[in-house]
């Protein structure tokens, strides 16, 4: 399958990229690794008139410790994030998630900026960024704005990015001293998650003091299981954790598809939360 025809430009700076996008109109799209956009274009589900290839903009490729948070350049590939030394403590979650995306070839091309901007509820990084109280930086012709992850994902493949804006950076909390894990359930290697759970847990002597739980593919956007998080605070036994996990039903009824009914998704989420919390504490 070959995509429909489009124009292609490769800018040498972010400023030039933004100019090309704004002149290209509403159907112009940025592309980097292309591992979310090209499959859509080949299915003709996306038909951009102009692709602005920002893949070569080396200054969007970094992982920096900014003191209170970690800043990740949009062009970092999943492969690079999987072994990024700066990701320690709770934000190691990003590395744990990155190494479970797709397969090695996909991880060599796919970028965190592309994955977040694509806003696929079945994709892995969005729930992790949400669980780490993350934010994205969007640059447009008029300047830059920071959008909390909680406000960024609007629906399946819909985000708060405006036409002409480029997602340049993803920020996540460091969560020093926390443990983290990503439990992904899939039927076959390389599949999308049927359900996955991102957990960031702060605990001491077996008692949980703080928990963040992000859910993949349980709604039209990644979501936090806030009832579970509340119930996990203070939990000090397997039974208490299991009881807290049961509150995942409060997130509402996930849509069924060919892989899983709503009931099965809820069951999976509960089991995966139990596992994720235990693994994050170990």
């Amino acid at each position: 399958m070959i995509p429909a025809a489009f124009e292609y430009e490769r800018p040498s700076s972010l400023a030039e990229a933004l100019k090309m996008l704004s002149e290209g109109g509403d159907d112009a799209r940025p592309i980097a690794g292309g591992h979310s956009l090209l499959p859509l274009m080949r299915l003709r589900l996306a038909r951009p008139s102009l692709l602005v290839d920002i893949g070569g903009l080396a200054d969007l490729r970094y992982v920096r410790d900014e003191g209170d948070h970690i800043a990740i350049g949009a062009l970092c590939t999943h492969h690079e994030l999987a072994s990024a030394q700066e990701l320690t403590g709770g934000c190691r979650l990003i590395a744990q998630v990155a190494r479970q995306i797709g397969d090695p070839q996909v991880r060599h091309r796919g970028t965190i900026g592309g994955s977040i901007a694509h806003a696929d509820p079945a994709s892995d990084l969005p729930a992790a960024v949400l669980a780490l109280d993350g934010a994205v930086v969007a640059r447009g012709a008029g300047g830059s704005r920071t959008i909390p992850a909680a406000d960024f994902f609007l629906g399946p493949l819909m985000s708060a990015l405006e036409p002409g804006e480029i997602l340049t950076e993803v920020r996540v909390a460091k969560r020093v001293g926390c443990g983290s894990t990503y439990e992904k359930f899939q039927r076959r290697a390389q599949d999308w998650a049927i359900v996955a759970v991102a957990a960031v847990i702060e605990s001491s002597g077996g008692t949980i003091s703080n928990a963040a739980i992000g859910l993949t593919n349980m709604a039209g956007t990644p979501i936090r299981a806030s009832g579970v998080e509340e119930a996990l605070a203070g939990a000090a036994s397997e039974e208490a954790i299991a009881e807290a996990a049961g509150r995942v039903s409060e997130v509402g009824t996930p849509l069924p598809d060919q892989n899983a009914s709503s009931e099965y998704r809820l069951h999976l989420a509960e089991v995966l939360i139990r596992r994720a919390v235990a693994n994050a504490m170990s």
């Binding site: 292609y8 499959p39 492969h79 091309r109």
Partner: peptide, 18 residues
């Protein structure tokens, strides 16, 4: 699968212009 700058990639999901 081919190598692009030394890394394995799926060449059905890379544009020749890239």
């Amino acid at each position: 699968t081919v190598h692009l700058n030394g890394q394995s990639v799926k060449s059905c999901t890379v544009l020749a212009v890239q």
